[in-house]
Design a protein around this nucleic acid. Sequence first.
DNA 1: GTCTATACGCAGATAGAC
DNA 2: GTCTATCTGCGTATAGAC
Lengths: 189, 189
Amino acid sequence: MARTPTRDVIMSAAVSVAAQHGISGSSMDEIAEQAHVAKGSLYYHFPSKDAIFENVLQAGFDRLADAIRDARSATEAGAALRAVTEATLAVLQQNPARAKIVVSEMFRTDRPWGDAIAPARASIVVLYRDVLRDAALQSGGTPAAEAITETAGAAFFGAIAGAGLEWLLFHPDQPIGAVADQVLLLARC
Amino acid sequence: MARTPTRDVIMSAAVSVAAQHGISGSSMDEIAEQAHVAKGSLYYHFPSKDAIFENVLQAGFDRLADAIRDARSATEAGAALRAVTEATLAVLQQNPARAKIVVSEMFRTDRPWGDAIAPARASIVVLYRDVLRDAALQSGGTPAAEAITETAGAAFFGAIAGAGLEWLLFHPDQPIGAVADQVLLLARC
DNA sequence: GTCTATACGCAGATAGAC
DNA sequence: GTCTATCTGCGTATAGAC
């Protein structure tokens, strides 16, 4: 079996540690231990602790964006809302540790790496907004697509994230479809 | 004017500092500076840093729960969904610094004070669930109220929180009613 | 590329005067 | 109740051998 590059091992370890203690609460000592490398080696692959988590978040946002795009394009228009919801939940489920970090960093603007990841973050909100716009057009144009803003996109993301974390943290035995039902239930009240 | 008790000054300062740097990133030195007291005085009013934030979060959760209950009971059944949404947004807007902390701690289970605030957190999710159940009964019993679980409550909270933070952080000029519209738009797609 | 050893500052917490 | 002074450990980051 091909050996995983040390750089990736370090990033995985960082995700795992940060899921437990938060990013600020994660020490380079613990990341090194979890990655089975010496602390000094971390600084060969990354210039600083901040750089590690900048890369972690960038990768997490990119993966989420890819999942949304895939679900949106691989689905007939009428079912896009459910497809995107389930695709997002699947990404969260696939790596719950990373999910906790990505979700909790989605609305933090005060990080050293804030400027670097802002575009990736913003594009995710826009993607969710566009999915909602598609659905509005599909259902006869009410509300008007232009009336749907990034704020609604953030609400959609928040709904999936809230349900997803409740699921993974407190009711992990629920099937993913049932969780999606609870999210989409907001769309029917 | 009556002087604010030092204990409250410290808690306000802690909120303000944590909104900028996160809880782990907040130092007792900076909290003391912001509160205009010496660091030693913090330890007269609280036994530890953790204790300060346990109290901050408990108070934040309690205030949110009160707002939800008030909005729910002061409204005729048909408008409860909007009333609760706007009431929640108003709480966030009234103290954005506290809002950031409360929202970001809603789905963290790994804190020293986790057990202490878990009941308050859980009761908020249940409150949102019950508001959704009310709305389902109101609109003719579809879906069945029993089919609406805490997961939907968490989704509802997440939707409001996501929209609210997007609003306060990136589009603070929007009127609160417009933000509520974007949240409730999820309910109409 | 990976290691060990170490420099250096900062954070949480305590002691004790006033 | 509030202050100043101080202890102590931990955390990031660097130096340099292998």
